[in-house]
Amino acid sequence: MADIASTEAVHPAGLQHHFDSLEQQSDASTLGMWVFLVTEVLFFGGLFTAYLVYRSTYPDAFAVASKHTLIALGALNTAILITSSLTMALAVFASQEGNGKAVIRFLVMTWILGASFLVVKGIEYTTDFHDHLVPGAHFFIEGTNIGHAQLFFSLYFIMTGLHAIHMIVGLGILIVMMYMAGKGKFTKEYHIPMEVAGLYWHFVDIVWIFLFPLLYLIDRHK
């Protein structure tokens, strides 16, 4: 019995048995998350490649079509996501200090900002539907080839839609983190889940950082 007690004394909370130390466990978790994010980069990369191919094939139609995206809402959403990345970084910072209350406070702020992004996106989609910008029988844009313009909007909806799905998953992860923080799971020594959740959230931000100029900005001057 004495042996077990002494083992537990050197066995910090949260350390899984197949790791030597929390540091090793933390490095392994973070590495695993980065490997996952590489697969995500290539997942979105396939869509960016499709965009590259069709934009270079039909530059005029893409220029005309992309001017129909709502730049004010896109810019607003960019600012919202950047702010949510700040609050997420501050939540991770709070977890590094073992300050559970601050973790929850910043996670709630991040969650509200993430949800606001989706609301703005929803308003944007609604406007797109009303303006006949959804590919299909009722699609209409003046002054260019309808088929080629539909390619742009197909990519617009698939890319922003896939991004929005990632946001929804992120909101779910934030709730799990709030629950864990509420249970007092995070300490100065153990806060790996927050680090990993932070990586995911910032990655989704980065995808939007590239979607915004490609879908809203680059042909705006034409």
């Binding site: 915004f212 100029p213 680059i218």
Partner: peptide
Amino acid sequence: FNVVAALGIAFLKASLVVLFFMH
């Protein structure tokens, strides 16, 4: 240079997020 500026700034922003927010 519109494309260069837009993607250059996007790359810069992404780098800042990766280097500092993502540690």
